[in-house]
Design a protein around this nucleic acid. Sequence first.
DNA 1: AGAGAATATGAGGCACCCCTCCGGTTGATA
DNA 2: TATCAACCGGAGGGGTGCCTCATATTCTCT
Lengths: 230, 230
Amino acid sequence: MAIDRPSASAGNPAPARPLRRDAQRNREALLTAARSCFAEQGMEAPLEQVAKRAGVAIGTLYRHFPTRLDLVQATFAKKLALWREAAEKAVTMDDAWAGLCHFLETMCELQSQDRGFNDLASMRLPESACLAGAQTRIRELGVHIVARAQEQGSLRPDLTPEDLAFVIWSHSRVTEATHAIAPDAWRRHLYLLLDGFRTDRAHPLPAPPLTEEQLYRAMTSLGGNGACGA
Amino acid sequence: MAIDRPSASAGNPAPARPLRRDAQRNREALLTAARSCFAEQGMEAPLEQVAKRAGVAIGTLYRHFPTRLDLVQATFAKKLALWREAAEKAVTMDDAWAGLCHFLETMCELQSQDRGFNDLASMRLPESACLAGAQTRIRELGVHIVARAQEQGSLRPDLTPEDLAFVIWSHSRVTEATHAIAPDAWRRHLYLLLDGFRTDRAHPLPAPPLTEEQLYRAMTSLGGNGACGA
DNA sequence: AGAGAATATGAGGCACCCCTCCGGTTGATA
DNA sequence: TATCAACCGGAGGGGTGCCTCATATTCTCT
């Protein structure tokens, strides 16, 4: 499993002299290529294809990113930050329901534009990953987003923060199926689901919410074989 | 692409003399093995593993099922029939909303028990497939199920039969993520979504429904590389 | 029991992807 | 411009899975 090999993200106090110019160029070409490969094919896109698209040999890719996880993290740092910003903003919005919608809609939009981000959102990175902190922060914010909307009475009280994972997962396949055919169809699905979240429509639910521990394990189990799941 | 090879499901007036006893035995062992492999790993489970689990050489598998699609169809005929029966029953139930729930709940249950069925439900088999007829029939019934519930006023009027695909797709990943950790969690997700389907105080949806053609293409596009999608 | 058709076997060719390693190349520095 | 560490290329070994085909086996029928 990739995770056991030396990884650029491991404890690395790196005095980090600046990269040589060719190395810098290659690194950026690799990131650009990775962005497009991952966006099209998900986080398990063949690395050889990333290298080819970057116009670089496979060995070069491995020199820069010893682990698939390293490449994934470098590739998605910005998009993860966007997601996190949406969450930070959501908790500051006066209308908590609008905040919830903003949070989920931004997330779904990011997912729908990028199959790799779709994968990333659906699963949990290993503890060691430097992006794991952002994921954790987003979950914390999710707790507040849910709580505020419930205090204001707009979100059904029997919903837990863990239920937000349902949005990620369910949206994940919907957008995968429709994005090439009807790129906006996912909004319809999201709003149907959101209508089910409203207080005034709530009917008793037939199963208890996931516990935090269960959610953790569920996200870890996804993408178990090929990619970055621990 | 597998579909171009000679397939047992093609126009086959087959006088079909009965199988030799060993052949019969192997065929059944293969189907049993396929059921468990597909249930665990989805429709793209390695055929070599199916053969091994059946205690049979890979060549034997190909003799019985020249195409992956042939094996898939033989494996899932019964479960598809169960799904179809649920649909047939749903349209006869007095309470159309209960019928809708029965239909969707049965479908989701089948999906949650079997990753292969999960795949099968999410995508469209090629025209040539002998199970394609059942899929078509189920869609027809879906139209009636939706119409009846709308006539009775329980289902929101802006919902179309194509929207039922959202249930399949969204459930698909939810159950994939949770089935090993909380095997009943999918019911919670389904009921949240169903609450969004109810008539009372439905909110406007931000995107038009899929057309029939779009739905067809979306289901065809899923699982595009490895398996049975045309 | 013997013959012949039906069936089973599994090695092997192909394609894909992973990752490593070392000889050749290039950019920074003096 | 000479030096050398840093960097790059890409062949190649390992693994998996697909599917075919020549050969060996087994059933069935007389």
